[in-house]
Nucleic acid binder design. Structure first.
Length: 200
DNA sequence: AGCCCTTTGAAGAGG
DNA sequence: CCTCTTCAAAGGGCT
């Protein structure tokens, strides 16, 4: 396939093919699912509780009913589940645990602006991985994530255009919602090397 | 305990 | 405009 051309078709947030967020969201509203917003708040606040996360909670609660869409990708692919199935609280906690580890890996719980860290929205392949990883695990051939990801990379390329478009569309919705939730957010906020250069 | 590995895609920086 | 770098998820493996 041609990822670049394909990306140009469905992967862009803005551009001539992208009418507007409004028209996109009108379609999104057709999606039938309604996870608790609290789960999303846990996600965006990285599972932390405390004064600093009231800002995120306020941002999420003040946005609109599309908030669950972001949760859609992050919480929506529990192990051995299909689309539309609700995710359990334990699964949510399980998903958060390694994230906390990564917080330590990246140095702190905040971004370099001192505010609560907001993570990047997942791209199409990341969404595909979240949904498909457990299948590879169930096959029992591989256990290491690096090996599993190699397999998923090959399977991703083996997907048809229409199959991939499902994930590109979802990723685009993620980005749109992320932009609405965090208008001033930049991926650069999470750059560790930026933090280090500032600290030096 | 903390980082590496491995994948694709998005986004930012710099030339 | 193009290239390079970083981060997003995951978790076993390694230091």
């Amino acid at each position: 396939m041609e990822p670049t051309a394909f990306r140009g078709e469905v992967g862009r947030v803005s551009g001539p093919d992208q009418n507007s967020a409004g028209s996109t969201f009108s379609k999104l509203q057709l999606l039938d699912w309604c996870p608790p917003q609290q789960q999303y708040l846990n996600l965006t606040s990285r599972g932390q509780s405390g004064p600093s996360h009231t800002q995120t909670a306020a941002a999420a609660s003040s946005v609109h009913p599309l908030v669950p869409l972001l949760l859609y990708s992050d919480r929506h692919f529990p192990p051995s589940s299909l689309y539309g199935q609700p995710i359990s609280a334990s699964a949510a906690l399980q998903a958060d645990a390694p994230s906390k580890l990564r917080q330590c890996y990246h140095g702190n719980h905040n971004n370099n602006n001192g505010s609560q860290l907001v993570k990047k929205p997942l791209n199409a392949f990341m969404l595909y991985m979240k949904e498909t990883r457990h299948k590879v695990l169930q096959e029992g051939r591989e256990r290491e994530s690096a090996a599993i990801n190699r397999i998923l990379g090959r399977r991703w390329h083996a997907l048809s255009r229409s199959e991939q478009s499902k994930y590109y569309d979802l990723a685009q919705k993620e980005r749109l919602l992320h932009m609405q939730l965090y208008p001033g957010w930049s991926a650069r906020d999470n750059y560790v090397r930026v933090c280090r250069s500032i600290a030096e």
